[in-house]
Write a protein that binds this DNA or RNA. Structure first.
Lengths: 144, 144
DNA sequence: GTAGGGAATGCCATAAGATTGCAAGTGCTT
DNA sequence: AAGCACTTGCAATCTTATGGCATTCCCTAC
């Protein structure tokens, strides 16, 4: 289970194409999730818009990437941890959406159990919290 | 502080128009959040598409409604509790997005403190959890 | 009660974002 | 090396969102 794009593709029975590798590379560049528009801007000259959509959908279905929606309804993508697979995304996941810079971080913290009302099952507890990230906090502190 | 649409509008210095009242009525019909497409379908013949966008934006800015994004990036709206105001949305809020029927519930449970990594401030802890709601659970149980 | 001013609405056009069908190209297997 | 299936890129289409402007409507002052 490596972070090497070629291995990841093989493990999920996906054909090895240069477009797919490029997309994986871009997403893997940072632990911070990257937004669809950003990906499009970076890869738009190498990869067709539609292909990018399709690749991202495939990756999500296969459990290779997480798709996280930000406050504007824009899709953001981040690599899944190795615990994710096709039929079972990593259950305990906290995303942090900075409301200042817009970046989405995947936090490696345990999610406290939220008490559900009777009848509700939190099958996939996938929580997103909003606030200010460390970089933006530093900037705010500096300018104060 | 009433749930009467006319009062709500007055309290937020908004003109009383029939379109605004209708939108508030629709949203207030259910504790479950209603999606933009649903609203449009229900009100499309009375209210212009563009007007609906503008009204919803206004309501969100004024702190009258919450906007919650579902997994598809679609906006869903629900009435804010009385604790919300223009400059300070209710901080502790848990939304529950049913992955089966798509409905979004506003849960009246307290949000457990999530331990943030150093430097991160969870200014507005606005958590959304995904799973199966009581109705869908009942249906699943019945068909099993 | 009514006249006037400012805001809200509706319609138009336009932009941005997402999806589908199909022909051509590419990777994988034998 | 050849064939097949999958993938890609392009064009067309559709949905969703935004901006400008004339008309209408609400609220206030008189």
């Amino acid at each position: 289970m490596k972070l090497d794009p070629v291995n990841i593709l093989k493990e999920h029975d996906l054909k090895h194409t240069k477009q797919r590798v490029r997309v994986l590379e871009e997403i893997a560049l940072d632990t911070v999730a990257i937004s669809q528009p950003e990906l499009e801007k970076k890869l738009g000259k190498e990869i067709d818009r539609v292909t990018l959509y399709r690749i991202l959908n495939t990756y999500e279905e296969k459990g290779i990437v997480h798709r996280i929606m930000d406050l504007n309804g824009t899709a953001n993508y981040a690599l899944c941890s190795s615990a994710c697979s096709e039929d079972h995304h990593h259950d305990e996941h906290v995303h942090f959406n900075c409301t200042t810079c817009g970046k989405i971080y995947c936090l490696e913290v345990t999610v406290p159990k939220i008490k559900m009302p009777a009848g509700f099952t939190a099958k996939t507890v996938n929580t997103t919290t909003y606030g200010t990230c460390e970089k933006c906090n530093a900037l705010i502190a500096a300018s104060a």
